[in-house]
Design a protein around this nucleic acid. Structure first.
Lengths: 129, 129
DNA sequence: ATTATTGTACGAATATCTTCGTAAACGAAT
DNA sequence: ATTCGTTTACGAAGATATTCGTACAATAAT
């Protein structure tokens, strides 16, 4: 199985692309520069490298290139969460869950979704018995 | 607020120290080498650097030094989880929760803990209304 | 058509992480 | 006391990530 290991900066860029969809370097950079302090060419270079690595696809048909995330948010989340559980949560997924719920203000809506999800899991476990 | 950013390798070492408590380089290395392939002096050097950075404390009273994690597991989890939610989960904690529950087999016991936790959160939210 | 603006390409400097060889210090065993 | 195994200290090489200056190309504005 191929392990993808985007760096910190690369994840920030991927985050923008997942959120906004296909974007130019300028668009990505404008968003990043709200919270980060780096020059335009830095973002450009990063995205070029990510393209070489296969993390991004790009359309060069017009002068201003348009980039797209080449790896799925789902898959990336899966890998990073699993690693995180193993290394800093000592293998306990529930610990991570509680950490996440405790410190990020969750909306009633989100909590409802989670409750449904829990119910589904338990039902499944019963069936496997 | 001081941001702690242990590297990948540093997190592995912290993981061992959180799990086992105060340990020598040898002890840490023996555990790491079960899953990782690096020489003894590499682990030593890493732990020395971590000590310089303030990530580890150490007791040098006997020849064989004993290291301890200087940052709490709790605090580290909190920071990394929050960053993760922001960058790759688009700010949605519940998405992370579902990811965690979906791919790590959780025991009935763990699920029960989570349910209790959810209930507590909801109760609190009611009171704040 | 000339100039200004905006974008990409390239290369290099800087920073950071990871790895390990080698030497010196220490303690235990002979 | 000499030897042997273990440990720390140091330094440096190698790998990877991050940053940006500069040059050139394309487009838009005058």
């Amino acid at each position: 199985m191929k392990q993808i290991r985007p760096t910190e900066s690369e994840l920030e860029i991927l985050g923008v692309l997942w959120e906004k969809g296909p974007s130019t370097v300028r668009e990505v950079h404008d968003i990043l520069s709200q919270t980060k302090d780096a020059g335009y060419t830095t973002t450009l270079k990063l995205m070029q490298i990510m393209h070489e690595k296969g993390l991004l696809d790009r359309d060069t048909s017009s002068k201003t290139h348009v980039y797209t995330a080449a790896i799925s948010q789902q898959k990336t989340q899966e890998q990073l969460v699993n690693k995180m559980i193993d290394t800093i949560f000592g293998g306990s997924a529930s610990q991570l869950v509680m950490q996440a719920l405790g410190h990020h203000q969750s909306s009633e809506e989100e909590l409802e979704k989670i409750r449904e999800y829990l119910a589904a899991i338990e039902k499944q476990q019963k069936n496997n018995r």
